[in-house]
Design a protein around this nucleic acid. Sequence first.
DNA 1: GCGTTATTGAGATTGAACAACCATTGCTAA
DNA 2: TTAGCAATGGTTGTTCAATCTCAATAACGC
Lengths: 127, 127
Amino acid sequence: MTQRSTRQREVIRDVFRTSDRPLSTQEVLHAAQVHKPGLGIATVYRTIKLLSAAGWIDTVRLPGLPPRYELAGRPHHHHFYCNHCGRAFEVPGSQPLLDALVPSGFVLEHHDLVLYGRCATCALATA
Amino acid sequence: MTQRSTRQREVIRDVFRTSDRPLSTQEVLHAAQVHKPGLGIATVYRTIKLLSAAGWIDTVRLPGLPPRYELAGRPHHHHFYCNHCGRAFEVPGSQPLLDALVPSGFVLEHHDLVLYGRCATCALATA
DNA sequence: GCGTTATTGAGATTGAACAACCATTGCTAA
DNA sequence: TTAGCAATGGTTGTTCAATCTCAATAACGC
């Protein structure tokens, strides 16, 4: 016997499946507690680590903020961070001519483009 | 009397003036201690806060890493982070068509493009 | 010089994210 | 069913960046 299927893990996986944006541990906790009251933060951290190790979710790192997580295997995209409500969103990816930027001798492996501003909801609310 | 000119602050400003890349607090500490042995980390933090408030340096935020600092007022550019030695570098800026990426209703205020890979030194060393 | 007081350095402290601990709970394979 | 043990939840511990404390130091106006 190695790995068991528990209600908590089911709920957490569902949270990711039904989200269209990357989620922080706190966001996962609150969303999961709706369907499984009493679920603890320790279980969120443990399950995220499991899902991450299994390649089921990807880690999204934003400057100065705790990491967010999203379903793995999505097509190339970037992220938009709302300065007002603190939520992260997914934006369609483009492949700009990054190679032209890389200095001679440097080897490019990966890149992150993060956009900052106001999401549609917050832009309306503070217009 | 309001603000004094101390050897420590002079040294820290010189560190930034003679660097061609953004520096972390630890990098500033080590570079400054060469010219002022015994200089403490608290002074680095205090001076960085001062210089930042004065608009003399800009903060460079990298995902999942403590911030770096660089002389303010440089032309538009991006940053390259070496996964091997942990140093950040400046790369020439381009203005990609970001507006096209922003979803309808969202308001774009700022953006960060970070490249990851190996700097020239580390690429050579591990080739 | 001298005295005032801004500044410093070392260590203690905070705050946040996350791991570890452990008694209890509840899958699951006979 | 039920025994065995993986998983949970509440809490404490750990780690690291950054701030605070405070006695000692050193700018600088006079």
